[in-house]
């Protein structure tokens, strides 16, 4: 599918917004205003490219913690994220129960996930099964890090979708690290996409720093899934530019030179260069976007700081569905 200039700019905007929100989280952490941040810097192209391949709000997503840009593209706002970083009551994923970046957004069909990695992969196949049983044409997209594809539950989930030809797109974000452990200590194949052939679905590797390449690859997989032709596995490859989380010190396992070298392939920079070259993005437009992002982030921080914490006794609920208070 050929993308219009407008949509290309929209994709760039989503990447930019997610980046600025993410950067502000690091600043807030250094200022001691928040306790924890896990960053998606370097992952924006893969996530925004994937999101735009979906019918957002119609298709389903079971994400993982690195997916700030994906969630942003699905409608999770900077204010939502700031509320979550600060553990405020109005945070939409869990009402302050979960750590930040443990997403859930019912309005976007983005399902709540936990911290144990790869649990969400099986849920995606279950949702895919339900879609198939109901003979609907929705698809499910699920994401994960490359290290987590070592988990048994990941294989079980992908296997299910392959056996039943379920409408699921398995996206692996291979950022070269699982905290400190490199991919060659996780798998004996060059790419997690190679695991697909043992499970019986198409596997493909794509440059995860190229938002339009990811969009094209995921769009193809979505089309396949929607037509009932089954699941696909796509490895998007990028570099984790930040430490694993705000609790990690990555100097203990990688050099500054390595990080600096990889920043040359910063997906935001690459998208900008490409769009400028194509004449689709002017300096004035970029300035405008930057100003808008800054304003949104400033306002989000302000709103979140002013927002109330949950009442302590709200921690008693809702353990069971009967206790859920709607509206």
């Amino acid at each position: 599918m050929e993308l219009s200039a407008e949509i290309k700019r929209e994709m760039y905007w989503m990447m930019l917004l997610a980046r600025r929100v993410d950067e502000r989280a690091w600043v807030l952490h250094r200022q001691g205003k928040i306790a924890f941040h896990i960053s998606g810097i370097g992952h924006e192209a893969a996530q925004v490219g994937a999101a735009f391949a979906l019918r957002r709000g119609y298709d389903w997503v079971t994400p993982y913690y690195r997916d700030l840009a994906l969630m942003t593209a699905l409608g999770y706002s900077p204010t939502d994220f700031m509320l979550s970083l600060m553990g405020k009551a109005a945070e939409p994923s869990s009402g302050g129960r979960q750590m930040p970046s443990h997403w859930s957004l019912r309005t976007a069909n983005a399902v709540s996930h936990s911290a144990p990695v790869a649990t969400q992969t099986i849920h995606a196949s279950g949702i895919g099964l339900a879609i198939k049983l109901r003979k609907e044409d929705k698809v499910v997209l699920t994401t994960i890090g490359e290290g987590s594809t070592s988990q048994g539950e990941w294989y079980e989930g992908v296997n299910w979708a392959a056996v039943h030809r379920l409408p699921v797109i398995f996206i692996v974000q291979n950022n070269q690290y699982a905290i400190s452990v490199p991919p060659e200590m996780q798998m004996a194949v060059p790419s997690s996409a190679d695991k697909a052939c043992g499970l019986g679905l198409p596997g493909e590797m794509v440059d995860g720093t190229d938002v339009f390449a990811v969009f094209a690859a995921v769009s193809k997989a979505v089309e396949r899934a929607r037509k009932g032709e089954g699941p696909s596995l796509i490895e998007t490859r990028m570099y984790r530019i930040t430490p694993h989380s705000s609790d990690d010190d990555d100097r203990t396992y990688r050099t500054r030179e390595e990080v600096e070298e990889n920043k040359k392939r910063d997906p935001l920079l690459m998208a900008r260069t490409l769009l400028e070259k194509e004449g689709l993005l002017t300096i004035a437009q970029i300035d405008e976007m930057e100003a808008k992002a800054k304003q949104m982030v400033d306002e989000a921080v302000k709103a979140a700081e002013a927002a109330p914490y949950p009442a302590p006794e709200d921690a008693a609920f809702p353990v069971y569905a009967e206790e859920v208070r709607r509206g």
Partner: peptide, 15 residues
């Protein structure tokens, strides 16, 4: 694969 029996059930139930 029991994790998937329960996990696929969870996904379908969420739907």
């Amino acid at each position: 694969a029991e994790a998937s029996i329960v996990g696929v059930g969870i996904g379908a139930a969420l739907y």
